[in-house]
Measured scan of single mutants.
Amino acid sequence: VTLFVALYDYEARTEDDLSFHKGEKFQILNSSEGDWWEARSLTTGETGYIPSNYVAPV
């Protein structure tokens, strides 16, 4: 499993987005949709879409 870490804070803009804080780690569930990836936060357990340019591989 490839994990990603948040480089910046992000505040959700829609109900499908996932808010997160810098340093939070994610498991990517689906990265085939372009710039927005479906991810699960390893901190909160919540699932939603995150901007791929806000995260980097651990």
Rank of each mutant, 00 (worst) to 15 (best):
S31N: 15
K25D: 02
A6R: 00
Y49H: 07
P51T: 02
T44A: 03
E11D: 12
E24W: 08
A39M: 05
P57I: 10
Y54F: 15
P57Q: 09
H21Y: 13
S31T: 11
Y8G: 06
N30I: 07
I28V: 10
V1K: 11
N53P: 06
S31Q: 15
S52I: 07
D35M: 14
D16S: 13
T44W: 03
G45C: 07
S52P: 08
L7S: 02
I28K: 04
P51R: 08
N30F: 07
T2G: 12
F20C: 01
V1F: 12
W36F: 15
E15S: 11
A6N: 00
T2K: 11
Y10Q: 01
E11W: 08
W37P: 01
R40I: 11
R13N: 10
Y49L: 14
T44V: 02
D35W: 08
N53C: 09
F26A: 00
G23A: 03
S52C: 07
V58C: 08
T47H: 08
K22C: 05
F4W: 10
L29E: 05
V5H: 05
T44K: 04
G45K: 05
R13V: 13
V55T: 04
R13Y: 08
R40D: 02
R13Q: 12
K22V: 12
F4H: 07
G45F: 07
G48L: 02
T43K: 12
V55W: 01
L7D: 02
V1L: 15
L18Y: 04
W37M: 06
L42N: 05
Y10H: 06
V58P: 04
E38R: 10
S19G: 08
F20V: 04
S41R: 13
R13W: 08
K25Y: 15
G48Q: 01
G45V: 01
P57R: 07
L3T: 09
D35G: 11
T47Q: 11
V5D: 02
S19T: 11
R40V: 10
K22H: 06
N30G: 10
I50F: 01
L29S: 05
I28M: 04
E46L: 14
V58E: 12
Y54Q: 06
E11T: 13
L7V: 07
P51M: 08
D9A: 07
Q27L: 14
A39Q: 00
L29Y: 07
E38V: 15
V55L: 14
W36I: 08
V55N: 00
I50L: 07
D17V: 10
P57Y: 06
D17T: 13
S52D: 03
T43P: 02
T2P: 13
K22A: 12
E38N: 08
Y8N: 07
K25A: 07
R40H: 08
Q27R: 08
R13E: 10
F4D: 00
I28T: 02
D17C: 06
A6Q: 00
S41I: 07
L29P: 05
Y10V: 02
Q27A: 10
F26R: 00
A39F: 03
V58M: 14
F4K: 02
S19V: 03
A6C: 01
F20H: 01
W37G: 01
W37T: 03
E46Q: 15
K22M: 08
A6P: 00
D35S: 09
D35L: 12
L42P: 03
L18A: 02
D9F: 04
F26N: 00
E46D: 08
V55K: 01
E24M: 06
L29I: 13
T47V: 13
V55I: 12
